[in-house]
Amino acid sequence: MTTHGQFRLGQARRGQRGIIAAVGRSPGATNGRDEVFDVELERRLLEIGFVEGARVEVLHEGFLGRDPIAVKVDSMRVALRRHEADMILVREAPAQGPAGTAPR
């Protein structure tokens, strides 16, 4: 992962943070049936605050397979599975400073 690249939230590790660049899968990336599912998922992610421009930070990872993850989205915390988080593309920001002093 490059320092200022982009990453899928579903692949992110604890402590990684950034700004949401895109929510949703590119058309044609999935078959027809999944597209209905994905459109619904996209709206649900948007409704709970995963919207382009929101700041995100991975706070916690689950015990088995590091799944699900707990994410800070602006001022709230949301738990979701990595599978769902994969739909969110994040523009990476530098990881937080050592003493947790970096501005949020």
């Binding site: 999944d34 707990a70 738990a79 979701l80 769902e84």
Partner: peptide, 12 residues
């Protein structure tokens, strides 16, 4: 079939 997405707010 597909399982439902797990998306849940963790309240303060």
């Amino acid at each position: 079939g597909k399982s439902e997405p797990f998306i849940m707010e963790l309240p303060g």
